[in-house]
Every structure is written in structure tokens, then in C-alpha cells.
């Protein structure tokens, strides 16, 4: 195998299925009634207001928050990549971008193995795929916010995951960074990676996602984007919501209080 080819995940089953799932912190259920499936090469947009359980679902899939009801199945064993919403890092921490991305390989390396050519190639490829090849040896803390965000995405990609979870990846990104990320997501889908992305951005949902899951403490709707991305569902999820669509800002009034 040449070092530049990415192993294609085996496409035999859904990357993720949850049936009647509830996730909870302690005694309070944070998200209930989740029934979804995400297939390899498919992207699902996860949409809901703040505190509606979007991050909960991602952390539940990672096993950081327990599933208290229902069942959850992960399709392949190739692993899950995760891009958290905000990373609180010490800007003076003495690591380069390349070293941060190598952290994505640590689990594969285990206790005793040193990084080999395959690991270095995966790191190089991940950095190139997010367009940061020219700053690979810079100190991570010296990069801009958008570059750090892409750096963390590269770390998730270096593990060559079959399922990628992205929490608000477009927040605070300028247009070039945004376009670069869109492009990366399309390439990943083409390579068979399943993606779940939380977002406020309906245009993103339309452009790169295949399915949409609306949540607000529980599952409101799930299905193909054309069927689910409806005004009725938006009103159910958001009481009042500003939508940017086709360069117009539309205020969607909710059904409560009107």
C-alpha cells in the first residue's frame, strides 16, 4: 500500500444507528427519543437551539455521556473522529501543528510503538486536506482561530475515522476558511466517511448534508433534508429564529407567544 492512499472504510452497514435512545447527565435527561441512522459517505445536519442537546448527542456517541434508554450501534471499528465546539488551549503550549495532528494517531500507536512512515503520511495528508501545509511546523498557539479549528479537524482526520462528529465547525470562520471546510467535508464523504455536523446554518445543511435531525430536548424530526427542512419543523424547534438564506435574513416566527 502506498503511503498516500487512505484506506476506504468497509461499506457494509450503517456507520451509526440509534433506536429510541436517551442520553442523560446524572438524573436529568438531556436528550430523548432519538432514532436515527447515518450511512457511510452520508452527512447528517444536527440542528436545534442552544441547550437543545446537540453536543449531548455527540458526546453520547463518543461514550462520554451514558445512553440510559434505547440502543446504539456503531458500524465499523475504524473509530470516531471528534471536533469539539470550543477548545480551551494554552496559547503558549509548546507544540507545533504537526505534533497536535500526530495526537490523532496516538491511540493507534499504543504504548510501545513509535510513529512510523504510515503515521507521518496520515498526519501530512490530514494537514494538507485542511489546507495548512505551509504552517505545519508553527507553534499551534500562534495560529489564528480559524487555523486552529482546521488544525483540530486535521487531528480528527489523522485517525482516519469512519465516523466524524463536528460540533459547530463553522462558528467564527471567515469565508475562505468556510469554503475550505466545505470542500474537505465533500472529499470525506466521497471517501466513505459518515459525518454528523451540528450547525445553526441552514444553507450548510442544504449544501453538504443528506439528512437532517432536529432536536429540542427530544427528537423533533429526522429524515432526508428535502422532507425535513420545512418551515413547520423550524417553527417547532425554534420559537423565533433568524435564518440566513440566499443572502436574505428571514425571521421565522415561532408558534408560541404569537
Amino acid at each position: 500500500m502506498s503511503p498516500r492512499t487512505r484506506p476506504i472504510p468497509i461499506i457494509t452497514d450503517d456507520a451509526l444507528t440509534i433506536t429510541g435512545g436517551s442520553f442523560s447527565y446524572g438524573d436529568t435527561p438531556a436528550l430523548t427519543d432519538v432514532t436515527i441512522s447515518v450511512k457511510p459517505g452520508e452527512a447528517m445536519a444536527l440542528i436545534g437551539p442552544n441547550g437543545s442537546g446537540k453536543s449531548t448527542l455527540l458526546k453520547g456517541v463518543l461514550g462520554l455521556i451514558p445512553l440510559v434508554e434505547g440502543s446504539m450501534g456503531l458500524g465499523t471499528t475504524a473509530g470516531i473522529g471528534y471536533l469539539p465546539q470550543t477548545e480551551h488551549i494554552d496559547p503558549e503550549f509548546p507544540v507545533t501543528l504537526k505534533q497536535v495532528v500526530m495526537m490523532g494517531r496516538y491511540r493507534k500507536l499504543g504504548l510501545f510503538r513509535f510513529p512510523g512512515s504510515a503515521d507521518r503520511a496520515a498526519v501530512r495528508e490530514a494537514i494538507a486536506s485542511v489546507g495548512l501545509g505551509n504552517v505545519a511546523n508553527k507553534r499551534f498557539g500562534s495560529l489564528s482561530g480559524g487555523q486552529q479549528q482546521r488544525g483540530f479537524l486535521a487531528r480528527a482526520l489523522a485517525a482516519q475515522p469512519s465516523l466524524l462528529l463536528l460540533d459547530e465547525p463553522f462558528n467564527g470562520l471567515d469565508q475562505p476558511n468556510r469554503d475550505a471546510l466545505m470542500q474537505t467535508l465533500r472529499q470525506l464523504k466521497a471517501a466513505g466517511v459518515a459525518i454528523i455536523v451540528t450547525t445553526h446554518d441552514l444553507e450548510l445543511a442544504r449544501e453538504v448534508c443528506d439528512t437532517v435531525l432536529f432536536v429540542n430536548g427530544r427528537q423533533i424530526a429526522f429524515g432526508p433534508k428535502d422532507e425535513v427542512l420545512t418551515l413547520a419543523n423550524l417553527q417547532e424547534v425554534f420559537h423565533e429564529f433568524q435564518v440566513e438564506i440566499d443572502e436574505h435574513t428571514v425571521v421565522v416566527p415561532g408558534h408560541e407567544g404569537h
Binding site: L62, H88, I89
Partner: peptide, 8 residues
């Protein structure tokens, strides 16, 4: 460097 990323 990143306790949350490490846990994830």
C-alpha cells in the same frame, strides 16, 4: 495540551 480532546 487538551484534556477534553484526550478524553474524546
Amino acid at each position: 495540551f487538551d484534556p477534553e480532546g484526550s478524553a474524546a
